[in-house]
Simulated assay, not measured.
Amino acid sequence: MKYRRLGHSGLKVSEIGLGSWLTYGKAVADNTAYDCIHKAYELGINFFDTANAYEGGKAEEVLGEALKAYPRSSYVVATKLFFPMGDRPNERGLSRKHIVEQCNASLKRLGLDYIDLYQCHRFDPEVPVEETLYALDDLIRQGKILYAGVSEWSAAQIENAVGIGKANHLRPIISNQPIYNMFERYIEKEVLPVCAEKGMGQIVFSPLAQGILTGKYKPNTEKPEDSRAANNSTNWVINSYFRNDVLECVQELNKVAQDLGVTLSQLALAWVLRHPNISSAIIGASRPQQIEENVKAVNLVLSQDVLNEIENILERVKDFAPLR
């Protein structure tokens, strides 16, 4: 495994991280989830991502239980808040009340004394940014969280928050967690440059486009019965990728991978990690073997000729916009 600093902070995270969205606490049995987490740790992954909203806290519980086997200083836990955790008006968003209450609840579910990286899962237009930033800074002062980050914020929102933080001498936001893969590249235009300028690293999710960039889905064919795409509880996320032009590109990308003697998933992860502002790519896994395959991507360096070939293939889907 290789490690990168998260932005300008001193925190080092594994280039491949393990996430729990749509998997642990939901589609994957707890024992299998434990096996995946243990395999990830064994292979050098030190960054584990979850959120309070993942199955109403169940994913946090599964992750916390699995990590009890290891020294606390040896891993980095990231969790998030924003989405509703109940039906009452203050059980959602980024108000001081919700931030403090959900931090305490996440600590309890995870079984930890502190959270390494606490992230605002989305931007909250109903709450003053100052209120959110001061609440996060107070949690850092109290030692309940070590660093703060955001997820899927726009470049303008990030720039504004960083400016407010500096003006008020608050501890800086060190990271952003956006979606990023060969098909969803919106961050390249504005988010990446702004974050690089502000000293924030990227922890990207869905680098394999929810499994599309493994090559197991073919154009003009039915989804495999045992795949996540055929699972009624998770296929809403994947369905936007099921277009023949996208799947045809995947087949061509697979040929590039074969010529290099690697798997398509390894190629896709190496492509994501080519950018120096990306600190870690979060994978999901329902089997330990998937993690063993994916971590090999950290040793794959793509030449400019290969990168050009990939760009030529992706040109036909450059306007891809998922229906979400």
Rank of each mutant, 00 (worst) to 15 (best):
220 N>C: 08
254 N>T: 14
61 E>R: 06
131 E>N: 09
95 S>P: 02
191 V>C: 06
172 P>V: 00
141 R>T: 15
281 A>H: 03
233 S>F: 06
261 G>H: 12
36 C>L: 11
235 N>W: 10
75 Y>G: 07
143 G>A: 11
229 A>Y: 09
232 N>F: 13
156 A>W: 15
83 F>R: 07
60 E>P: 01
86 G>R: 07
114 Y>T: 10
198 K>F: 09
223 K>M: 14
56 G>D: 12
231 N>F: 02
70 Y>V: 02
181 N>P: 03
204 V>S: 04
131 E>F: 02
240 S>C: 07
52 N>Q: 12
154 S>T: 11
214 T>Y: 07
308 N>R: 09
153 W>G: 02
309 E>K: 12
155 A>P: 08
83 F>K: 05
218 K>F: 03
238 I>R: 04
263 T>L: 09
29 A>E: 15
242 F>S: 04
167 A>M: 14
114 Y>K: 10
73 S>R: 15
18 L>M: 11
101 E>M: 10
270 A>G: 04
301 V>P: 01
142 Q>E: 15
287 R>Q: 14
187 I>T: 10
229 A>L: 14
39 K>H: 09
188 E>N: 07
84 P>Q: 03
23 T>S: 15
202 Q>T: 12
300 L>S: 03
120 C>V: 01
70 Y>H: 08
258 Q>M: 11
118 Y>R: 02
204 V>Y: 02
17 G>N: 08
172 P>C: 07
78 A>G: 06
100 V>T: 13
277 N>F: 00
53 A>C: 15
235 N>F: 11
49 D>S: 06
105 A>Y: 08
287 R>T: 08
48 F>A: 04
218 K>C: 05
89 P>H: 10
287 R>H: 15
